[in-house]
Design a protein around this nucleic acid. Structure first.
Lengths: 228, 228
DNA sequence: AAGTTTGTATGATAATAGTCATTGTATAGC
DNA sequence: GCTATACAATGACTATTATCATACAAACTT
């Protein structure tokens, strides 16, 4: 197993603010976990006893309402740290994290994160900024869901997926979600999500090939997302 | 003007984690600002050059979408610190803060907050927990807006207002919002909010007297909020 | 390979919520 | 106190979105 000191993933996250000694201590105790597509990494209501640094793969962070409807609140990918909430607040997790494709992640025991958080201002400051940014995104999502139509949010999601995960040579988005997952992210019923994707295809905005989404008219999608 | 060292408000927030020296330095530079009902404390898109500690009053934190629809993302009251986002991230504010009634707040210049944030782990840790808690609430709100009906969210808001601001001897909620503000918090149109409040009154769940809301049947409101 | 399960697609319909219009009612400014 | 303005309430109507039903396709199971 590789050493954290040499790991390139941390260039993408706040662990690069740690000192050599702190990294070395983490490297001695960390453990690489792998999760198959669909597997739950940790569960709403339970304590996550540590923090995961995602090495590869994408996962969804979601919540269930009282009637069992799911809302995806965030996607996390390579470089993201997940599970820090419990480590900071000593409260059970309020979200479930599920692998969307095969995920490998380094598990870092809670203590090894908490100590630098208390003693290393550079690391603490970086983490603080990350949470502030997450909060900003959550507020934006709330306003988006509340004030925009499902059509707008669908266009917005497609653009977000392109922005975040990129496209291949054919302008096909580099991540494949099920229709149910798309619906849970947009905040609508699965049937509505399917219908809107079909109408986007009919209107020449996108092409659909199974779960793959090809972006055909990005500027029109942008107009749609802004409600024009 | 009183000294921060003696101020009782800080018992309710993270400033109590500051050292005597830090508090004294803040006290020397702080400034009490007052805002009339409806006045904007700071604006979406602009930098807030400092942090406010609310001494008295209630304010709303809101965002506008592209079409000018408002979404209230949070209420803040006595003891809350607002405006820390810009101080941490050096980005313009993504929310507008507006006084809902007459507000007095101590303005603390950015530098005096940033220094303890970097050097005082106790204060930094407390602030970190606060932002994590805000994030948790924002995620819950997102799921609530996305998966619950307007009726449920209205019942939820009424219970939240009671929980947060209390009720007087007649079970009247100790804060008065306009119908538009209620609608912007619930995430619906003003007319819909009015209609739902009227139906709650008709069903004996609440009583309405101008802007005042009297809670008559709390347990039924709870059932409603949970979708039962 | 056949059967089972899960996911996708679409029509029909119903529920929900939004918009527009109108009237009445406070509230603020002069 | 009176007028202008904003706020509240409600009806009528429309638009949006969810639900239910069904058909078909894809992906596992054994």
């Amino acid at each position: 197993m590789g050493r954290c000191e040499q790991c390139l993933i941390k260039q993408f996250n706040n662990l690069n603010a740690l000192s050599k000694e702190e990294l070395s201590r983490i490297s001695d105790s960390k453990d690489v976990h792998t999760f198959k597509k669909g597997e739950v990494i940790f569960d709403e209501g339970k304590f996550s006893s540590g923090v995961y640094c995602i090495k590869d793969g994408v996962c969804k962070l979601s919540q269930l309402n009282a009637n069992g409807k799911e809302q995806i609140v965030k996607f996390s990918k390579k470089g993201d740290l997940i599970g820090y909430h419990s480590a900071i607040t000593h409260e059970p997790s309020t979200i479930t994290v599920t692998a969307l494709n095969d995920v490998s992640a380094c598990y870092i025991p809670q203590d090894l994160i908490k100590k630098p958080l208390e003693e290393n201002p550079k690391f603490a400051g970086a983490m603080f900024k990350t949470v502030c940014s997450d909060l900003k995104e959550a507020n934006n999502a709330m306003t988006n869901i509340s004030t925009n139509t499902v059509h707008q949010r669908m266009a917005d999601l497609i653009l977000f997926l392109k922005e975040t995960y990129g496209v291949d040579d054919n302008n096909t988005i580099n991540i494949q979600l099920s229709r149910k997952e798309i619906a849970s992210s947009v905040g609508t019923a699965t049937e509505s999500a399917i219908r809107i994707l079909s109408s986007f295809k009919k209107d020449g905005l996108i092409d659909l090939d199974g779960k793959a989404i090809v972006i055909l008219d990005e500027s029109e999608l942008k107009h749609l997302a802004e409600g024009i």
